[in-house]
Design a protein around this nucleic acid. Structure first.
Lengths: 134, 134
DNA sequence: TGAAAATCCTATTAATTTACTCGGAAATAA
DNA sequence: TTATTTCCGAGTAAATTAATAGGATTTTCA
């Protein structure tokens, strides 16, 4: 998704290209992009010169959106989602803890967009160039 | 650890007792307490009427201390710890993301103490009593 | 002193998850 | 029409997690 964001506005990127740039297996990427497409985060263009593009601008896709699709929403503990399971009061102090951790992660992932990542990446490159004395 | 905190200042709690209160297998608890003891978070008293006690007050043990021992420190991605692995600049934007997530979780877990959990638990019980009209 | 109650220690196992592989069908551009 | 590419579903290997098991050691207490 980072590669698609970097490339946003240009031609579609094929799985083969992304696989090479990010060093992730083609077969595996295929699976991931299947899910991302069904979730509406990317659009696919089939056939030669096809590939994938983001279906929204990078500024409107958060890391959390992507993780929710690829890894599922965070499940720190069953008792958070499945409240009826939690019949035993002793657990409840723990439950509050899991909720705080989950919310904290969601807060981070859903506030960082692909655009942020691209910007971080670009400014990082500039700093690296300066350090090398360029 | 929550049970030990609830019981802090009184007699040692045996694995059998904790197993019953928290509905966790005795065998499994044994393993966990082995690690906790080696890490210095609990003291053991062997023999009849023995068991475990916290080696510091609940206010001085954070949830993060416990999780670091039982689950190991958070490893969101290898490239955070093992910086030399990360030779490819393309990864770096992602790396910053993993660091932010990790730090966020650590911030939560290392700021909540066992005492906090006990207090939450106790005030929760009071509220529950009130709701029941007691 | 001996039996019961505990921890201590190491090895094994079953279920689940994760990353990955594979083969072939369908769509499209050149 | 052929090469390129997505689409789809099934299968696999390694790692992790929670749990199990058995026996040795330590300590209390009657």
């Amino acid at each position: 998704m980072f590669e698609l964001a970097l490339n946003y506005g240009s031609e579609p990127l094929s799985i083969k290209t992304i696989s090479e740039k990010q060093n992730i297996s083609e077969y595996y990427l295929e699976q991931l992009f299947g899910s991302l497409r069904k979730a509406g985060l990317v659009k696919s263009i089939r056939g030669a010169q096809g590939g994938y593009v983001l279906s929204r601008p990078p500024s409107e896709i958060t890391v959390g959106d992507v993780l929710d699709v690829l890894e599922g929403p965070i499940e720190i503990s069953e008792c958070i989602e499945d409240e009826d399971n939690c019949s035993r009061v002793e657990y409840c102090a723990t439950r509050l803890l899991w909720i705080k951790i989950r919310d904290s992660v969601n807060q981070v992932t859903h506030s960082i967009t692909l655009e942020d990542m691209v910007n971080d990446y670009k400014s990082m490159n500039i700093i690296t160039s300066i350090k090398r004395g360029e």
